[in-house]
Design a protein around this nucleic acid. Structure first.
Length: 158
DNA sequence: GCGACAG
DNA sequence: ATCTTGTCGC
């Protein structure tokens, strides 16, 4: 039975925009949309990236919490450079290398990831959260502060 | 053709 | 993302 864990997807830095889009189109079908995931993850990792004033430096940070107590049980940081220009829809290629490096510095393996940016709410249904989830083999939730695509209506009254 | 466009 | 004053809306 194929599963993300059995066939880890290597991260391949694209050479240009066209290749980046091809990578997304190629990997989108490998996202597990039906897996149950951990019923009660023991740990949850939050990831974020901050930039230097010129945008030429960045720091990726990961903090792992005990899901029950919210105690910080692990953390790691990786300073580097943006790996790709910011192009809407290709955001993952910008921060993924640093995020992966930070994750590699962890002592533990978190059971759930929560990262910046969208996952499925993406033009090709393959945002950062999807890509990160495939490469790490971990269930991942993407959190976007502003929409990238689509429209919606708020919940009705009652 | 013009505007919009995760972080 | 990051730099920033005043301003609009609830």
């Amino acid at each position: 039975m194929p599963s993300p864990q059995d066939s880890p997807v290597p991260y391949v830095p694209p050479a240009d925009v066209a290749e980046a889009r091809r990578v997304q189109e190629e990997l989108r079908s490998r996202v597990d949309l039906v897996g149950p995931g951990p019923a009660a993850p023991a740990t949850v990792a939050g990831l974020d990236v901050a930039y230097g004033q010129d945008g030429d430096l960045l720091a990726a940070a990961v903090t792992v919490l005990d899901a029950a107590t919210l105690d910080v049980v692990d953390e790691a940081v990786c300073v580097g450079r943006p790996a790709f220009p910011y192009v809407p829809g290709l955001f993952a290629f910008r921060e993924m290398p640093a995020l992966l490096a930070a994750l590699d510095r962890l002592t533990t393996r978190p059971e759930l990831l929560v990262c910046d940016g969208h996952g499925l709410a993406h033009p090709r249904r393959f945002g950062l959260a999807c890509h990160l989830g495939l490469v790490t083999g971990l269930p991942t939730i993407g959190v976007g502060k502003t929409p990238l695509v689509g429209t919606w209506t708020g919940p009705g009254p009652g």
